[in-house]
Design a protein around this nucleic acid. Structure first.
Lengths: 368, 368
DNA sequence: CTGAAAGCGCTTACAG
DNA sequence: CTGAAAGCGCTTACAG
């Protein structure tokens, strides 16, 4: 492997000039630049990223933190984010911490981040307090997706609105006994997706004078299997709900599977609406509120690149006061979502008029 | 951020000793080690990976090359591989080259790899000739999954056997008119999966005296949508095949969707068997030949760690002859697969005895 | 527009 | 078991 010195010798200039010419910095004469490029090409020279990092203090690497690479949603985010980063000359260090709970791999403990990356993308993951501290101490630019942390830009969807749209769709179809399958609620205020989607559902129910009986709300772990299990509980009740709003398509697919197994016909006996527009939602004819996941990843990368650019312009943060990695007015991008009606939802069919109506009335009356 | 010098001063030793103590090298007295650790803890010291890399020539980073993060199969591989790597102190640089064709991002052009990583994992991806050259010139340890390149260890399944198992299952059920949906064949001899799966199918057909009419073989792009399109062609034929072996579960799910849309009953009118045991195969009741994808990723990482260890022991490769990154007898691990029978396959139902029999006989006779 | 030289923060023979 | 010193290969003020 050739070094910068070799190039300098062949081009007949100093290493400083080689460095400037190769990085496209100004104040290098065209003639000199050409000679340097020729020499570099001849030697197949590529600057050592390691040496460049040590000297410049920049790694050109972005850490991307995810709980699971294997879930569709996260893979989409990674894909979108990494494409944009790569197009801007950044590499992706994948930090698959393996879980969303308190037991997961800690960024700090494993020294995964320290001095390795220029910035961090946190994808729908609740960081622990020590990790937040670490990132803040490191003064790294951070952008989050799906969570909202003070001082850091974020990209997300309006989870309350998503749930409202889905639930309203079911109400508009005449359903009154509408159940909800949500993600496990978390104690973290920053990761509001589970509670927001539930809130949107409850709001629309209330606005339409519909009460939510406790047994109509079930939590699952966002997986297909979890959704199937939630379906067992919901669909074995008597009377059954006539519609379900499921907080993710993967869980909705699981629920559809259970419905099929139990012989519950969709949409005649049960309407189901999910969230995401998962790649396979159409295979199941699943009505859903779609979100542009890849786009969210791209957008997050762009925000990160902007922060990196700001930081580069300013040089090192001179003092805590003007720390651009922690803006009070950090941008919060909300991307649009859209209801996609497919075959899994349909108008309420009063198959058992008396029973249904009685139940609807009784649950309404049971409300407080 | 504290530097090694700070730790040395506080501990009252040289930086060399700090370096040795912190890395757990032998020949450091217990007493000294304890003092160094205490000082490091006090200062929250973490060695700069960048400086360490420059000095040692090792980055502790492994490049993981994939065509798409978003496909289930690749996400599983990444997940398995990165867990093992992380547990051994290696980071993952994700190189999502975005496609499997000739137009994809080149590792060489973008200087993605040069001097950034200690080793490379190539996941079911056909490298171009220039990339192979690059990797060989760089003398990096490389392990491949799903492809076989001379000199590099690999992990894969026996694709011919997988296809044989699936096809035999259909034959055993009495089917004679069995179609095949495969991945697009590639011109690369190293990436034999598409042709191997087709070959296994053809072998079993021939062994059972069954001929394969040209219109019973369709290619798709491994996606759900591609499988659905393949289903259109296959299921609109008259007579229809009574069974299909589909080279991946995702394509099989697409085909099942088309069958449902066209009113073709599974398994009464059509048996379908896939490959992978995709996370959602059970939701569709899909019979499949399962492969332990995560495990393959883990196994590949282990082979890579072994190569890294060998290399570390030997020091730098002294000459081309003993270059361990290119062993002639590189290990080729074949992991076992298994037929998983679910509801999508069933015995041949002679719904239209005359027609079926006539067709079976004619195709047999058409054979050469 | 260009160069000499310091410095980034470690690791690693070498010597003792 | 420990230290002094060279060296990894760049970038970046500084000076001209």
């Amino acid at each position: 492997m050739s070094r910068i010195e070799d190039v300098a010798r062949i081009a007949g200039v100093s290493t400083a000039t080689v460095s400037r010419a190769l990085r496209g910095l100004p104040k290098v004469s065209e003639d000199t630049r050409a000679r340097v490029l020729a020499a570099a090409t001849e030697l197949d020279y590529v600057a050592s990223p390691t040496a460049a990092s040590l000297a410049s203090g920049k790694t050109r690497v972005v850490g991307v933190v995810v709980p699971y690479v294997t879930r569709w949603y996260f893979a989409q985010l990674i894909s979108g984010a990494s494409r944009v980063l790569r197009d801007h000359g950044y590499h992706v260090l994948l930090l698959d911490v393996g879980d969303n709970g308190p037991q997961r791999t800690m960024l700090l403990d494993s020294r995964m981040l320290s001095k390795r990356v220029d910035a961090v993308l946190v994808l729908s993951l609740q960081l622990h307090a020590v990790e937040l501290d670490l990132l803040r101490r490191l003064r790294l630019p951070v952008v989050t997706v799906g969570t909202r942390t003070e001082g850091w830009p974020s990209v997300s969807i309006d989870d309350v609105e998503v749930a409202r749209t889905a639930t309203r769709h079911l109400v508009d179809l005449g359903h009154r006994d509408i159940a909800f399958v949500g993600g496990e609620p978390t104690p973290h205020p920053d990761f509001a997706t589970p509670s927001d989607r539930r809130r949107g559902y409850e709001e629309v129910m209330a606005e339409n004078g519909l009460t939510v009986a406790p047994d109509r709300v079930v939590s699952a772990d966002w997986s297909v299997r979890g959704g199937a299990a939630a379906g067992e509980r919901l669909l074995s009740a008597t009377p059954r709900p006539t519609a379900v709003f499921v907080a993710s398509d993967e869980m909705a697919m699981g629920l559809l599977h259970t419905a099929g197994r139990l012989g519950v016909r969709v949409p005649d006996e049960l309407s189901v609406v999910g969230v995401d527009d998962h790649e396979q939602a159409w295979v199941h004819g699943l009505t859903t509120v779609s979100q542009p996941v890849q786009h969210e990843g791209e957008e997050a990368s762009r925000l990160l690149l902007e922060a990196l650019a700001r930081r580069g312009k300013r040089g090192q943060a001179p003092d805590a006061r003007s720390d651009s990695a922690h803006d009070a007015d950090a941008e919060a991008v909300i991307v649009p979502t859209q209801l996609l009606v497919r075959g899994s939802t349909g108008p309420l069919v009063p198959a058992l008029p008396a029973e249904r109506r009685a139940h609807a009335r009784s649950t309404v009356q049971a409300g407080r």
